[in-house]
Design a protein around this nucleic acid. Structure first.
Lengths: 192, 192
DNA sequence: AAACGATCCTAGCACCGCTAGACAATCGAG
DNA sequence: CTCGATTGTCTAGCGGTGCTAGGATCGTTT
């Protein structure tokens, strides 16, 4: 049995290598540069090996997305926990979210811009994705205000953050007023 | 001279045909299906003809984006004009914007998701893009509130709409509560 | 040691964006 | 009207993409 266990371990290890390498390559040169050939070369295996782990490129993106979701949840919770009082917590959450998006653009794209073949907002949504939303909900639910469903409020706040993150990075919004936009968003949306 | 004029006219006509066909194909089957081969076949010319009008596929996307910007501006202005009172106007603008995004997903992508090679938020930004933002500003500037720059407020409101539009269409947000999300956004962000 | 299975790679498919160079049609000059 | 030049368009092809079939090779088991 030990031999099979070792093989399974090595296989799992290689799968992690693939995901980590894809992520690294995407952060360095963008997702367009993540081709199956380049990826295969970097992990020092041939292309078909990738397909023994993933159905295709889409699933690799999905794997990076799941990894990113866990980290996003952690980042958001850490940011919120470091602040005191509802107002400061929400502002910290917003900055933490945007900061994550800015520092991990490829991961953010895998999560919310590209097609990783993952189901969102459904029962069979993978746990990391649900948890990332839950991390937002924990802080934002407190400032939803009277008669507003916390989930709905979180969705709207999240959408606003997502819009700021993507439009800013794509050069659709000038980067300099980012902080003032966050302030405005927090002050207006959250009921304190 | 008349011969050259006719040729120029025919050239311009063919260029319109290319853009219209690209847009049509994108709306029907998505931008991934808009390949230079398919596009050339649909306009009944060979591939290289495309490159005598545009530098490449990116510029074709850009041309569709410019067309879309003009339409978006018109749609937003029409929606706002049909409503009376600040609250109703802002809500109508929001619905008009989201409606445009939903009905013209490929055009919306060309504008705000894909790279059309256009400069945004700069001095040399093409007029249609500036005007689309201006259309938002006209209505949203009135409800920015005391001490808040109309431009900044418009940016935030726009980002929120963009987030709702993209996340909803990508299946990241459940579609059923769309209207309630708009209501919440308008009630909280706008100062009436 | 030999045969078997799992594992991996070479080679290739159809498609992509883009372009060089041959060809044909049209134009202007003599 | 003819002939050369210019303009316009096409065929063919380049290097790249995601993905896969089929053969070789390796480690394992008997």
């Amino acid at each position: 049995m030990s031999v099979q266990e070792r093989k399974a371990r090595e296989r799992a290890e290689r799968e992690r290598l693939i995901v980590a390498t894809a992520r690294e390559l995407a952060e360095q040169q963008g997702w367009d540069a993540v081709t199956t050939r380049r990826l295969a070369e970097r992990i020092e295996y041939s292309q078909p090996v990738l397909y023994s782990h993933f159905r295709g490129k889409r699933e690799i993106i999905g794997a990076v997305a799941l990894e990113g979701a866990t980290e996003l949840a952690t980042a958001v919770r850490a940011a919120a926990a470091a602040a005191h009082g509802p107002r400061a917590r929400v502002a910290a959450l917003a900055r933490g979210y945007l900061d994550f998006a800015e520092r991990n653009p490829a991961v953010y794209d895998a999560l919310f811009q590209l097609d990783g073949g993952l189901p969102y907002a459904q029962e069979d949504t993978p746990e990391p994705l649900k948890d990332a939303f839950a991390a937002l909900l924990e802080t934002l639910g407190e400032v939803a205000g009277e008669g507003v469903a916390p989930g709905l409020f979180t969705e709207v706040f999240w959408a606003a953050l997502h819009g700021l993150a993507t439009l800013t990075r794509a050069g659709r919004l000038p980067p300099q007023d980012a902080e003032r936009r966050v302030e405005l968003l927090v002050d207006r949306l959250a009921v304190l």
